[in-house]
Design a binder for these strands. Structure first.
Length: 274
DNA sequence: TTGTGTTTTATTGCCTCC
DNA sequence: GGAGGCAATAAAACACAA
């Protein structure tokens, strides 16, 4: 970057510009484009007076407080961090030279930057898990409601069917089959199958439908909310969650442990719940 | 201006790896 | 055992409302 080349030129004339500009009154006038005014009045922070002594910056005063990096320095560090968040010794030295910082400062900056990144990542993970949990909870509530609705529909149908059966004129002396009188086993939550239906078509669908009751269709146009896919641990792309398939049919997500067609007689509910 | 919360820079201590 | 990483922490710098 051309504008930066002036800034980060490590040659003697410009080298350590931030340090010199910060601590040496002679060059304070050569304020950088990005230096805040206050930086011209202050010296950089050193970890100990010994460091100052070694750097020939010791001037009988205690070292000043820690100093914030300039925006240009931070920008370059950020760019470097984007490429690789770990710092090999060679790169550390190069960066330090380029920025006019001590290698230790560069290392510390990377250390802290990694810590910040980790914190953000944890926050993102938490948000993702929370939204997934909320979706699942919402789905659960919907399923419970639908279950209740289906139960009431079944009960209503059973009542109507029984009334029909009773009203029908039966031949004298004929004993009706048990499932004609009690065609629906509500507790077992199984669909009613009339004998003749079973024999005629093999279909489990009943010809008797309640026109007043709402018809539940088995389609993907379910009112169930969107299921956000759960990312694997090494999936770092949290920016576009769920873009591949924002709408999911809930049947793809919830697999009943006991499907109605494979019920072996246990008293389990539709979703495998007792 | 000042009190307070947040962010950034830096240190310390411990751990792991070579 | 030294180098480097991380977590915890300190403290200065900063932001901002009152």
């Amino acid at each position: 970057m051309e504008s930066n080349s002036f800034f980060f030129d490590p040659s003697p004339s410009h080298g350590n510009m931030f340090f010199l500009g910060n601590l040496n009154p002679v060059v304070q006038g050569a304020k950088s484009v990005l230096n805040m005014d206050e930086t011209s009045k202050r010296r950089p922070f050193f970890s100990s007076p010994e460091d100052l002594y070694e750097e020939e910056y010791y001037d009988d005063q205690m070292p000043e407080k820690k100093r914030r990096l300039t925006t240009e320095q931070v920008h370059l560090l950020e760019k470097s961090f984007e490429k690789e968040n770990k710092l090999e010794p060679e790169r550390k030295t190069q960066l330090a030279k380029k920025l006019g910082l001590q290698p230790r400062q560069v290392a510390v900056w990377f250390q802290n930057r990694r810590a910040r990144w980790k914190t953000k990542q944890l926050e993102r993970d938490f948000d993702l898990l929370k939204s997934t949990y909320d979706q699942l909870l919402s789905n659960y509530d919907s399923i419970v409601k639908e279950n209740d609705l289906l139960r009431s529909q079944m009960a209503s149908l059973a009542e109507k069917l029984q009334a029909k059966e009773e009203a029908a004129i039966e031949p004298p002396g004929q004993v009706p089959e048990p499932n004609q009188l009690d065609p629906l086993n509500i507790n077992r939550f199984e669909p009613a199958i009339k004998t003749e239906d079973r024999l005629s078509s093999g279909s489990v669908g009943s010809a008797v439908l309640d026109e007043d009751a709402p018809q539940l269709l088995d389609s993907c146009d379910s009112y169930f909310p969107i299921i956000v896919p759960i990312h694997s641990e090494d999936d770092n792309n949290y920016n576009n969650p769920g873009t591949a398939n924002d709408r999911s049919c809930f049947a793809d997500v919830f697999v009943p442990t006991t499907s109605p067609s494979h019920d072996h007689g246990e008293s389990l509910g539709f979703w495998g719940w007792p």
